[in-house]
Amino acid sequence: MKEFGYTVHKERLIDYDRNDKRVLNHLKKHEPSVLTCIACGSCTATCSAGQLVDFNIRLVQTLLRRGEIEPLKKEVRKCMLCGKCILICPRGVNMRNLILAIQTAIDKLQ
């Protein structure tokens, strides 16, 4: 292969058709409360970890729903499982179990 001094940029869009929905399908069974998230961000605002590191717990459900597994894997590891987000969530999404169940599903995939 020839070198021209540049490489072909990778697309940064979310290609929903190609993304992997297996983790999402696992979650629909094991923590269906995730379906009711309205992305209000109150979880992120109160999150202990998110005050100090680049962690957005609201984004966890968004990435899950889009099937964006690679960034999701990185994101779930940042949660400290303190449970403050569950206390605040207006829709009663069980975020602790969400994080754990996502981890379980990811582990299963590997």
Partner: peptide, 14 residues
């Protein structure tokens, strides 16, 4: 700018 050409070629490739 040569370093940016990967952006240009990616659009054509798409």
């Amino acid at each position: 700018v040569r370093a940016n050409r990967g952006y240009s070629i990616a659009n054509s490739k798409k």
